[in-house]
Amino acid sequence: MSGDVLLRVEGLTRRFDISKPWLNRVVERAQKQYLTANADVSFEIRRGETFALVGESGSGKSTIAKMIVGLLEPSAGRIHFDGHEMDFASGAEMRKLRRRFQMIFQDPFASLNPRWRVGDIIAEPIHTFGLLKGAEVTREVGRLLDLVGLSSADAGKFPHEFSGGQRQRIAIARALSSKPEFIVCDEPTSALDVSVQAQILNLMRDLQDEFGLTYLLISHDLSVVRHMSNRIGVLYLGRLVEVAEARALFTDPQHPYTRMLLDAVPDLALSGRRRRPVTGEIPNPIDPPPGCAFHPRCPLVMDVCRQTLPQPRATASGHASCHAVAAQDALSVD
C-alpha cells in the first residue's frame, strides 16, 4: 500500500442549532442551544485502505460521514479529496469530484426508493453523471448486478421483492455504478443478520481488491471493524480520542475509553476472560462534561482531566488524546 493520501479531514466541526423556535425562546427567556456533534476532527485516509470510525451513539460518527459526502455542511474545518478542497457550493468542479466518491447506507429498506425498479435505482448515478446511454446502460446494470451476486434479470424487479442482504447488494451496485474510488460505508451491515453480514463484508472486501477501492467504514461493532479495517479512529462525544493501526488498537489500546470499549465486547471464544466491569453511560452531548469528556467514567481520571482538554499525542502507530497516557509517557521517558 502506498502512503498516498486520498482523503484528508482537518479540524472538522459541526454544531447543530437545537434551540426552540424563536417565539418559545422569547416567551421562556431561553438562550439559543447548540449541540456539538463533532469538534476538531482531523484524520487522513490513504488510497486503497479501509479507515474505520468507531463510536457509540452520540459520538458523531455518522455526522462525519455526512459532511464528507456533502449531505451536511461543516460548521468549521476542511475536507480535501485527492488534493482538491471539497466545496459543495461550487457546481461544475464538484460534479467531477462527486462521481469519484459514493456512499452505502445502513438501512437497506430505506436506501432504495420503493417505487423504482432496481435497474433504474442502479442506473441513477450513470444517468446523473451522463456516463452511458441507451442499451449500454442496460448492459452495465446487468454487469453490476452480476458483480454483486445478483442476476441481470433482477433489474426489472422492485426492492420489496428482495431480502435485506440482497437489497444491500443492490445498494452496493448503485454505489459502484459511477466507478468511484472512495466509498463511505455508514454502518453497512448493522441492520443485517450475522450470516448475511458475512456475505456483505466478504463482498465489500472482494470489490476492494478488484477495484482498489478506499473505504471509510463507520460502525459501532468492534468485531466488524477489526475484520475490515487497516486503521481505526475511536470517537467519543464528537472528538477523536485515538487513532491507531487496527492490530495495535486491539492488542495495545492506549486511550482508557478504547480499553473500555474492547472490554465491553462479549467474548465469543469463551476464553473465560473476566471482563473489567464497564461503568457509567455516555453523557448528554448537549451538555458535555468540561475538560476531557470521558473523565466521569475514566478509571485513570486525574485533576487535570476535569479542567483541560487533552491534546493528541503520538503513539506507536497513531495518536491518542489523554492526559493519563501523556503522564505515563513522561514517566517512561524518565
Binding site: S195, A198, L201, S223, H227, F250, A269
Partner: peptide, 24 residues
C-alpha cells in the same frame, strides 16, 4: 456451524468470513 463461522471476532484475523450462501 455456518452461523458461528460468519461472526467476525476480536481475536482472530480471518481474511474471509465463512459465509452461508443465500438467506433464510
Amino acid at each position: 456451524a455456518g452461523l458461528m463461522g460468519s461472526i467476525p471476532t476480536l481475536t482472530q484475523e480471518a481474511a474471509r468470513l465463512t459465509q452461508i450462501p443465500g438467506s433464510m
